[in-house]
Amino acid sequence: MPRAVTTRRKAVMTVIAWTVGLLIFFPILWTVLTSFKTEADAIAIPPRFLNFDWTLENYVTVQERSDYFRHFWNSVVISVGSTLIGLAIAIPAAWAMAFVPGKRTKDVLMWMLSTKMLPPVGVLVPIYLLFRDTGLLDTRIGLVIVLTLINLPIIVWMLYTYFREIPGEILEAARMDGAGLRSEILYVLTPMAVPGIASTMLLNIILAWNEAFWTLNLTAAKAAPLTAFIASYSSPEGLFYAKLSAASTMAIAPILILGWFSQKQLVRGLTFGAVK
């Protein structure tokens, strides 16, 4: 009879786990559902779960009234731009630290990590004034610069943990076979490094997309990405739950899907390789 018990246990576990999972996910589900309601249905009592007239009107309104796509595009430019520049700076650094480790490599890595401990508010005033004086306030370039710098330590660390796992012997083998430095990098190392670089890129885009200290403080109308755009709903007028939900759904959907695809690499990336 042990098998029957296991199956029953599994069934019970299934119910509990799904309940917990759906409870945690519920606020997101509720937001998505509400985005398809009319404003009246959105505040109906008792709340309407699926029994309402589905409408796309909110999405149209959000786009027309507040130019959602401009903010969406700002988010794309800022998160992808800062990630690509960060990678360009970090790949050589991580590469050198992983393959030509010196006595102080560990110290440099720890120091880089320690710069993440610097609370952003400690440098808010000077950055704000520097940006004001150089005309970088409320520009995408300005935010790309800041986000590149604050995420650089994470990029270097992630890449380092990936590169370190590429065995050095494979290089020697390639050299024995008469490969030059160029073909070594091109045909041996690059293919092995690409997965690590890809997951670093993905995670960093997610982090930059959701960054909400600098994006809120350094932008106004022009360069505001979605984080700042959504914040404008904090002082509402009239009924706005359905519109807030539509704007929220559009702001989180792309990154949620990206995040779900990258969940396998997420843990090691977020813990700097300390947990795999």
């Binding site: 606020p27 909400a212 959504i230 904090s234 929220s248 702001a251 990154i255 995040g259």
Partner: peptide, 15 residues
Amino acid sequence: VLAPFFVMPTVSALV
């Protein structure tokens, strides 16, 4: 379970 982590702070707070 993982989903809330990807929600940007302003969205989750306002929702």
